[in-house]
Design a protein around this nucleic acid. Structure first.
Lengths: 239, 239
DNA sequence: AAGTGGTCTAGACCACGTC
DNA sequence: ACGTGGTCTAGACCACTTT
């Protein structure tokens, strides 16, 4: 490609050209593509520029790169996506509704074995919170949360009746990893909290959050009937 | 930091040091941090190396960078996450079960207004597929899919009784953007397909996929009771 | 107008893992 | 062992946006 695709950043042009060759099946999944030096000659640029483009595609999962082994087109190039973790506060307000939060209960107690297991710790006393998030005064999300005060000692001094544990954690314990599971359940015992029939199907979101190998919190959130968790899927490349 | 954190890549050491300063509240959310030249002097490295580190953090959402305005610590540094799009085939086999696929119906017909709306097009004839994904011979996911043959003309020549539309699309129309919604519903009309009671709560995943501004496909997937969609949350930084 | 990040270069050395 | 990607440098020019 003799400089055809020149743009603002030539590494983007290179990335696009590589993508084109993959899409057009000029470079098949699993096949090794030319090395950086060859591509740099081909594209008439520095190797660092090619490196930038290929690194970008590797990060997006389109390419697989290994020293000495070279760069190949990923075989199962389907799966990764990015989305924004739903933040209830913003969710509600984005829908043009007034957000409300109410702490129902706050106790220090032993978690059931399942919760302890999810948090990967031997049962010991944790902070247990029950809370309700409201939209325009109506129950929106019922939340059952466990927090390990040994990992987040400052939590003892927070007035959790005023600020939701989630918002406080987000502000003071950021950058954590975690896992999340979504399932459908019958309202059951959460029905009373959300003011719905016990047979109503609810979305249950379970999330555990980790910092430095230690579980910070585990939360179960029951969403009011009809709620929809939405996410935009970010493609490896727009186009 | 006089070379204290030297590692394999010094840009990673710089990234870690910047993170440390943010975590320790040495640099507060919203505050401007020193520019690249200053940091390069501070760290005793080339500006490009600092740039690499800061670009990485900006991509992770930890920093916000603007020309001329400088680099500042992001205020709402909570939200982004990454996960792998659930691929039913792999899901089932990862659970040690045998995957099966069965095409129930395939028709060319006009979509209901809601589907047309989701795909952002005026109603015209689309390919409509009903299919069942099985695990160990038992119904696992019931799928109701619409495909626009004007966007994917090759689909007409595919034997969709043998390969699922999803797998074919993934292989031949990769790298697309889209949006996804998850909700809880009662089994209702999907109950018969999944062989469950009509009142059973099911997870409904709706996804529309776009390529180049045009909708490729819109699919509703009803998961068998008890199914859980899991995702690992990728933190901006491990640690 | 001027300062900041964005990018490119040409060359170099290094680390890793395959051969 | 040696080829490949990973990274770093020192300098340069450019693009954007705020002052």
């Amino acid at each position: 490609m003799t400089g055809l695709l020149a743009r603002r950043g030539s590494w983007q042009a290179i990335r696009d050209e590589v993508m084109r060759r993959i899409r057009s099946r000029e470079w098949l999944p699993g096949a090794i593509i030319p090395n950086e030096v060859e591509l740099a000659l081909d594209f008439g640029c520095a190797r660092a520029t090619v490196n930038r483009a290929l690194r970008d595609l590797a990060a997006a999962g389109v390419l697989e790169r290994r020293r000495r082994a070279g760069t190949r087109v990923a075989v199962a190039m389907a799966g990764r996506a990015g989305f924004d973790i739903p933040v209830i506060h913003r969710d509600v307000e984005a829908a043009g509704q007034r957000y409300g939060y109410r702490l129902i209960a706050s106790r220090i107690e032993l978690p059931p074995a399942e919760v302890a297991g999810r948090m990967g710790l031997v049962p010991r006393e944790l902070l247990h919170l029950l809370a309700l998030h409201c939209a325009d005064g109506r129950p929106h999300v019922y939340e059952d949360r466990w927090i390990d005060p040994q990992v987040v000692p400052q939590i003892r001094e927070v007035d959790l009746a005023r600020i939701s544990a989630n918002e406080w954690l987000v502000q003071h314990m950021p950058f954590s990893a975690g896992d999340m599971g979504i399932s459908a359940v019958v309202a059951g015992e959460a029905a009373g909290r959300l003011d719905v029939a016990a047979a109503e199907p609810l979305l249950l979101l379970e999330r555990s959050t980790w910092s430095d190998g230690r579980a910070i919190t585990f939360v179960r959130q029951y969403f009011a009937p009809g709620h929809r968790i939405e996410m935009r899927l970010a493609a490896p490349l727009a186009g």
